[in-house]
Simulated assay, not measured.
Amino acid sequence: MASTAEVLVAVKSSPDRFWEAIRGSTELFPKVFPEQYQSIEIVEGDGRSAGTVRLLKYAQGVPLVTFAKEKIEEVDDASKQVSYSLIDGELVSYYKNFKASLKVEPNGDGSQVKWCMEYEKANIEVPDPDLVTETATKTFSALDEYLAKN
């Protein structure tokens, strides 16, 4: 049975600016978050549209994972929304299904980032993905801080 988790993060960046940073995450995240990402590579596709597959290699010291492969399922630049699924990596052994979606919406002078995941545990011993949701929250906040300085 699938479970869901949702994270809402208020950021100071405009929706357009934050969305462009998310869309440019292949190049941007390893530069901004070297403690988290060793590299992000495009394995299939153009890096921006549905069907794109990216290989995320995590930095040493990141708990539980060394790499993940994700496939972009849907992208809507007009509504600033993207969804993707995990197709390979250590998390696949913990979760039979793992899909996430991200939407950037206006929120006062800034934006609200809504990140949702749907997952199905491989077995009952697998913990809830609290570390994943905590990492997402920290990443969005830190990205906003980076954008404010650059």
Rank of each mutant, 00 (worst) to 15 (best):
E70S: 03
V65T: 05
N107S: 14
F67L: 05
L91W: 11
K103W: 07
P63C: 10
D77I: 02
L91Q: 09
S83C: 06
D109G: 12
V92A: 10
N107I: 05
V113N: 01
A100E: 15
L86M: 11
S111G: 09
S79N: 13
K99P: 06
K71R: 15
E74N: 08
V113A: 03
F98W: 11
S93L: 07
S101G: 14
W115I: 08
T66R: 13
L64D: 12
Y94A: 07
S79L: 06
D88K: 04
G89A: 12
S93K: 09
D76K: 02
G89Y: 04
K114C: 14
L102D: 06
S111D: 11
G61Y: 09
N107G: 05
T66N: 11
V92Q: 10
D109T: 15
V62F: 08
I87H: 07
Q81L: 02
N107P: 03
E90M: 00
I87G: 08
P63R: 11
E74H: 09
D88T: 08
G108S: 14
K114W: 11
D77V: 02
K69F: 05
K69Q: 13
Q112E: 15
E74Q: 10
V65W: 02
E70Q: 09
S83V: 05
E73L: 14
P63V: 12
V92R: 14
G108W: 15
K96H: 10
T66I: 05
P106M: 13
G108R: 15
E73P: 01
G89K: 04
V75H: 04
P63K: 11
V65L: 05
V113L: 05
D88P: 09
A68H: 07
V104F: 14
S111M: 08
D109P: 13
W115D: 09
V92L: 11
V65M: 07
A68T: 07
V92P: 00
K80W: 10
G108P: 12
P106C: 13
